[in-house]
């Protein structure tokens, strides 16, 4: 771990300003990902701006009937929130499918959106990785890629986005609310929040230096049946091979978002549009542009199997 300076921000504006003014500054909240990465010198911030004391820990109704979730609401609290459990159940289910109880107690809503890939080549500083060190190449593409992405990948990077929570947020059309160093607030639709790797896999979101996530806003509840199905190599405490968040409507419509297969939490209009035609149609729609390796090509049939299972459950409910 490289030495770094540290400050405890007194306000959102001050935090954003501090982070923007120091080259190599990073915000720190729960630290469940950043501190690990710092120990391994994958992240080497020069300055940490601690945002844990800024409030931002409330869950409140919006005037539009939605829900504003403070960026510092811990995953445990968010998953247990009565409104979330009733109106946005897929979010609660996705949260409890992730990490462990101890990690969820620390991890925050804003931080979870920004957690970084679990690609093993990203995690070893001696290996090539365009995401960690642009221009060094991709170790994974010809290497061990079983857990990695098949959608949104590029010639530079096939890293997967690891978050469960973000899959549910994508499904729920969340907006990411931020404030920048000039005190300007904006709301970014989550569909636009994550960048695809392209030639610059080191750039993962549209956030500017110093731009702080202050809350995540959900639109008013859409009803329906909420499910989150995560398939992984053990029963708990593992990243998804494939996960599917789904909301089934009463009228045969449905929407889907996917984890474990995309460079970012994955959702397509085509897949949602195919919903009335069943699991195969949704699979074909979502995987139309899939690009697999011999190690991760099983994710394609797995997507279809999970969807088939969810459809069957939905029929059994009806």
């Amino acid at each position: 771990m490289k030495s770094f300076t540290y400050e405890r921000a007194a306000s959102v504006e001050a935090a954003a300003k501090a982070a923007a003014s120091v080259q190599g500054a990073r915000f720190i909240a729960g630290g469940t990902n950043l501190i690990d990465l710092m120990k391994l010198q994958i992240e080497t911030p020069t300055h940490l701006v601690d945002v844990n004391h800024l409030g931002l820990d409330r869950i409140e109704r919006t005037t539009e009937g939605g829900l504003r979730i403070g960026a510092l609401v811990r995953n445990t609290d968010l998953a247990a929130d009565k409104t979330v459990r009733r109106d946005y159940a897929v979010l609660s289910r996705a949260l409890v499918a992730g990490a462990s109880g101890q990690l969820r107690n620390k991890a925050t809503t804003g931080g979870n959106l920004l957690q970084r890939t679990r690609c093993p080549y990203f995690y070893d500083t001696r290996m090539p990785c365009n995401k960690r060190k642009p221009g060094t190449g991709c170790g994974a593409m010809e290497g061990m890629s079983r857990s990695l992405a098949i959608l949104g990948v590029s010639d530079a990077c096939i890293a997967q986005h690891p978050s469960d929570m973000a899959v549910a947020m994508r499904l729920l059309d969340a907006q990411v609310d931020t404030m920048d160093a000039d005190g300007v607030a904006r709301s970014i639709p989550i569909a636009d929040f994550y960048l695809l790797p392209g030639d610059t896999p080191n750039r993962e979101t549209v956030l500017k230096q110093g731009e702080l996530i202050t809350s995540v806003t959900l639109p008013k509840p859409v009803g329906g049946t909420h499910v989150y199905r995560k398939v992984r190599d053990r029963a708990s405490y593992a990243f998804a091979l494939v996960s599917v968040g789904a909301i089934f409507g009463e009228d045969g419509t449905a929407r889907f978002a996917f984890g474990g297969i995309g460079a970012r939490p994955w959702r397509t209009q085509a897949a949602d549009a195919a919903a009335p035609h069943g699991a195969r149609a949704v699979t074909d729609a979502v995987l139309a542009d899939a690009r697999t390796t011999p190690h991760n090509d099983f994710k394609k049939p797995l997507v279809e199997r999970i969807l088939a299972s969810l459809y069957r459950q939905q029929e059994e409910r009806a």
Partner: peptide, 8 residues
Amino acid sequence: EYLVPVHA
């Protein structure tokens, strides 16, 4: 990444 069984 090297998985061993958990309680579940």
